[in-house]
Design a protein around this nucleic acid. Sequence first.
DNA 1: CCGTACCAAGCAAACGATTGGTAGGGTAGG
DNA 2: CCTACCCTACCAATCGTTTGCTTGGTACGG
Lengths: 199, 199
Amino acid sequence: MPKPTTSDRRAELLTLAAGLFAERGYKNTTVRDIADAAGILSGSLYHHFDSKETMADEILRTFLDELFRDYRAIIERESDPRRAFEQLVDASFQAIDRSHAAIALYQNEAKQLRQSPRFAYLDDTDREFREIWLGTLEKGIASGAFRSDLDATMAYRFVRDTVWVAVRWYVPGGKLTAEAVSAQYLSMILEGFQSRDQQ
Amino acid sequence: MPKPTTSDRRAELLTLAAGLFAERGYKNTTVRDIADAAGILSGSLYHHFDSKETMADEILRTFLDELFRDYRAIIERESDPRRAFEQLVDASFQAIDRSHAAIALYQNEAKQLRQSPRFAYLDDTDREFREIWLGTLEKGIASGAFRSDLDATMAYRFVRDTVWVAVRWYVPGGKLTAEAVSAQYLSMILEGFQSRDQQ
DNA sequence: CCGTACCAAGCAAACGATTGGTAGGGTAGG
DNA sequence: CCTACCCTACCAATCGTTTGCTTGGTACGG
């Protein structure tokens, strides 16, 4: 008894579109490309969506909702900044694994999309994102878990970029699991490259 | 005696185009946008360049030439892997400061441009880039300068992404100098976030 | 079990706007 | 007079989107 609640097809098309947006870029992907991939004509897409923008919007919102659900749960549950930090990194790599196309879209196009009023909510998203990470880092510096000479803002940019840009090379379902990458990245971020036992 | 060797205007237009490409993206920037910024009509651009692609090509080549000149000089001069690593990071941040728009263009569009045969040389560029960084890291691991349990490939991706993505937030001529950012990033990469004197 | 009504889904064909690019002529300075 | 530079005027292609219409299926009253 397959009951297509509020359209299965819609979600299917969104997945297709997300993949193309991620691969070729938003502007470089035409609605005809998406329709071709779905095996229908371009005009038929407008039975499901009222614009190309709507597709991108929906893809981003779905991903961001999931991510922030995870993020909020972590900082509410975990009071120790070091453990919270580790779990944030972990959750991020799991998100890259789970929502690969959406994150690639976000990473590559958010800057341009943001200029349209329709995507103004991305500014709020960024603010909360920053509060969560920066807050955790500052707590960790204050508690002595992280180095006291660390510039919190710079450290925030550092870890944010390092983690999220991994979407460029990470392949979901590949040899490297999200857990493995997360563990290695955490080790590099926390302990550094330098060997400990020298000097 | 200003002697416009092979056209001053050409370089001027390229700088303008690079800025727009970096800001709005390659595909999102029209030849009319570039012409407007230069105060001329779009058709007039074709007196200087035979295509939009040529502009992007020339912008990228100029930047890459400069970068690799610096990179090669470093690894030829500096045999100590730790010092070589530091200088590579340094040179990269100086490049971000100097060739900001070109690097933003490279970071955002290289993946798509690469698919055109015209930009096939970007593959060679990537290969040499990887050899330089990965070689330095491997030498450092072998020499004991870097942690022996470091996964060289992963470390390469880590530092490559971390350093170059800084182009997204770094502002040339802003409060933070390239030297300051480079020093802080090096400290984070080499020593990590974790506080040393605990446990 | 039939007929009516409605529905989601898609097709065929076209729309106006914008795109990168072209052709040929004008003009100012050396 | 030449060259560098720019303009006017236009082109074909492609873009996102709209239109009117067809199809297969489901729901339901009689």
